[in-house]
Design a protein around this nucleic acid. Sequence first.
DNA 1: CATCTGTTTCAATAATTTCTGAAAGAACCG
DNA 2: CGGTTCTTTCAGAAATTATTGAAACAGATG
Lengths: 185, 185
Amino acid sequence: MPKPQGQHEQLTLAQDRFIASWGQMAGAWGISRTMAEAHALLYITGHPMNTDEIMDRLQISRGNASMSIRALLDWGIISRTHKRGDRKEYFEADQDVWSMFRSIVRERMKREVEPLLATLYEIRDASPAPDDATGKDQKELLAHQKRLEEMLSFMKVMEKLSQRFVSPSGSGLELAAKLLSKLDR
Amino acid sequence: MPKPQGQHEQLTLAQDRFIASWGQMAGAWGISRTMAEAHALLYITGHPMNTDEIMDRLQISRGNASMSIRALLDWGIISRTHKRGDRKEYFEADQDVWSMFRSIVRERMKREVEPLLATLYEIRDASPAPDDATGKDQKELLAHQKRLEEMLSFMKVMEKLSQRFVSPSGSGLELAAKLLSKLDR
DNA sequence: CATCTGTTTCAATAATTTCTGAAAGAACCG
DNA sequence: CGGTTCTTTCAGAAATTATTGAAACAGATG
């Protein structure tokens, strides 16, 4: 027996699945599931929604909704809107997947890579100088230094890349990606 | 009053700081801290180590050490070695930062992006067809379809890119990165 | 300014993830 | 074999992270 479904139910179901997968993936990347789900909801519906609507749809508390929304605003991937005659705040997601991606990468670089880079510099400067040692010790210290330098150089390249291609304005990454992905056909 | 320190202590200290920052960063990316620390330890010392040495240095239990090592092997960023006359297994980290990075990206694509992509296809195929609707509904369904397509196309480009540049053999990414980072000087 | 609507904060709690340690499992050895 | 050494597993404990809900806050409104 087939189970006929209205288009609205079918759409809602599809949206829910999208929201769930998005949330799942986010979890694997150190982003809270709820925050990702809120974003997925705003993205996939395309409609501005207020806090109560988000709460209802995702079955979460007001506090959680408020904090998730705040975090998404901080990441710069959703924005506030208002409706005439309605005092509530509405939120809508950036509908451009690439610009969304750029925002995320930019923010993560700032939050995680930059501090690490700073620490790596510090560690390098606090590491014992190979000149002061001899023989096996010196070799060891040189190798240590080399490993630090390689890691540093890697991180610096990454930072440069991100600055160049993931900058808020430029669509460099998108272009590059499209071109490069065409090469193997 | 200056606090003179032997080179060994200084080196150990630098290593510990490296291990700690590495572990911290990993946490932000959904990788367990201990696993990252074990990797950092093997990378920064450069020496093959056995389970007991890792346990002692990181102050973790045997079970934890065993599981972390196993995970690192699965990721392909450390490998087994043996020492003559010693039945213990030794582990050493891939010393090439770029190949390490490729392994990580490859593995994450396989584990997280590919399943998501598969789900997105499913969702698209289970979404209501716009042809069956009229007026406002149709517009809505078309917009939904478009958003799914855009996400799909983004993911596909990413997958292609990773296959091309992060393949186990090729050093494509490294080259590209170096070239690109030179452009703005 | 009292009230009403909407938003944020945060201590308490719940859920999840990570870690431990002891026991079981493998592999080697004489 | 039985003993020895090393490794893995996994149930329970500990630590960490996410979520709730109620109270405080902020701003509009009459």
